Amino acid sequence: MSSTDPLPRAAPETEGARLPPRSLEALRAELDAIDDALLATLQRRAAVVAEVAALKNGGVPLRPGREAAILRRLLGKAAGGPLPRQAVVRVWREILAGSLAQQGHFAVAVGEPGGSQKGAIGLLAREHFGALTPLHLHRSASQAIGDVAAGVAAVVVLPLPAEEDAGSALWWTSLLHQDRMSPGRAEGRADLGGGRIHIIARLPFWAPRPEGAPRAAAFVAAAIAPDASGADRTLFGLEFPAETSRARLASQIAAAGLSAGTILLRREGEQKIAQALVDLAGFIAEDDPRLAAIEGLLRPAVRLGAYAEPFEDDQP
C-alpha cells in the first residue's frame, strides 16, 4: 500500500442480505492495514511540517491559534462518530507536540508553587504539550518566565491569575512593565528573538474534563505574538488612578465600545496608581482605536496577549 492509498474499508453489504461476520484474524489483518496507512499518513504530515519549518526560517514554531482552529475543525468532523471525542483531542495534541519536537528542541517551563512533578499546573502542561516534551519545573512564576527570557524554554505555563494573588504570583504585572525593565534583568525580560513575552493560550482548551484530568487553569506565554484562531479573547494591562472603582473602569471600557469579561485589579497600599488585567472579547490589536477611547488611563493600554476561547463540548 502506497502512502497515497486511502484507508481500507469493509466491503458493503449485498442487497437484501448481510455478509457473514468476519473472523477475528480478518479483522486484525484489517486493523494492521489501517495502522500501516495511518503511519504513512503521519510520515507525509511530517514531511509537510519540515517544508513549513524551512519556510519559517527559525523562531518559536508554536502557533496555538492555528492549533485551536485545527482541533475545532476535527471535532466538528468527528461529531457522531464512534471515536470518543476526548481521544480525538489527545491523539492530535500528541501529533502537534511531535511536530513541534520535529522542528527543533522544544521545552516548556512551568511556574508551579512547590515545584512538584504531580502539581496541577505541571500535569496540565504535560497534557497539552505531550508526554515526551521536556518540562522545567520552578517554584515561582518569575523563575519560569526567566527560562523563556533566557531561551532555555520556548514557552512558560503559569497559573491563572486571581484577585487575591500577591507577591510573585502577580506575574502578569511583569508583562505589563516589560518596556521598563533593564535588559539584564531575567524576570520578565523579553529579548528572546527581539520580541516581548505575550500570553498566547489558555489551558485546558477542551472541556468537559474527563475523570482524572488535572482540575486547574493556566495561561501559556512565549516571546512571540499571539495568533488568531477565529474565536478569541485578548488580554490587556491597564494603569489608572487608584481611586477608580471596578464599576467605573468597566463603564469606561464599555463606553469605548469594548466588551470586558474578567477584570482583575491590583492596588498596593497608598500607591496612587492601580493596575488591571482585563479580558476583552475578540482578537484585538494593540493599536485598535477603541483602546485610546478608554477614559482615565495613565498610559496607553498594553496588550499582554490573546488566546483561543476554550472549546466547550456539549457532545459525549
Rank of each mutant, 00 (worst) to 15 (best):
T4P: 01
D5M: 04
L7A: 03
P8G: 03
T14V: 10
S23R: 14
A26R: 14
A29I: 08
E30I: 06
L38P: 01
A40L: 07
R45E: 10
L55H: 12
L55Y: 10
N57V: 11
V60L: 14
R63E: 09
G65M: 08
E67A: 09
A68I: 07
I70G: 00
R73N: 00
R73T: 01
G81R: 05
P82H: 03
V91R: 05
W92G: 00
R93N: 00
E94F: 01
Q102S: 11
F106R: 12
V108P: 00
V110W: 03
E112A: 03
K118N: 14
G119P: 08
G122Y: 04
L124D: 05
L124G: 04
E127D: 08
E127P: 02
F129T: 00
F129S: 00
A131Q: 07
L132P: 04
L132N: 09
S140P: 05
S142A: 11
Q143V: 02
G151Y: 07
G151P: 08
A153R: 08
L160K: 14
A162G: 14
E163N: 14
E164D: 15
S168H: 14
A169S: 15
A169T: 11
A169D: 14
W171T: 02
W172F: 10
S174E: 11
L175Q: 08
L176W: 14
H177P: 11
Q178G: 10
G184D: 12
E187K: 15
G188P: 08
R196S: 05
H198V: 01
H198Q: 06
P204D: 00
P204M: 01
R209Y: 02
R209W: 02
P210R: 05
E211G: 01
P214F: 03
A218Y: 04
A218P: 01
V220W: 03
A222C: 07
P226D: 04
D227R: 13
T234V: 08
E239G: 06
S245C: 07
A250C: 06
G257D: 13
G257A: 11
S259I: 13
S259H: 12
A260E: 15
R266W: 13
K272W: 10
K272I: 08
V278I: 13
D279R: 11
A281H: 15
F283Y: 15
P289C: 13
A293K: 15
L298G: 12
P300T: 06
V302Y: 11
R303L: 02
L304F: 07
L304E: 06
Q315P: 00
Q315W: 01
Q315V: 00
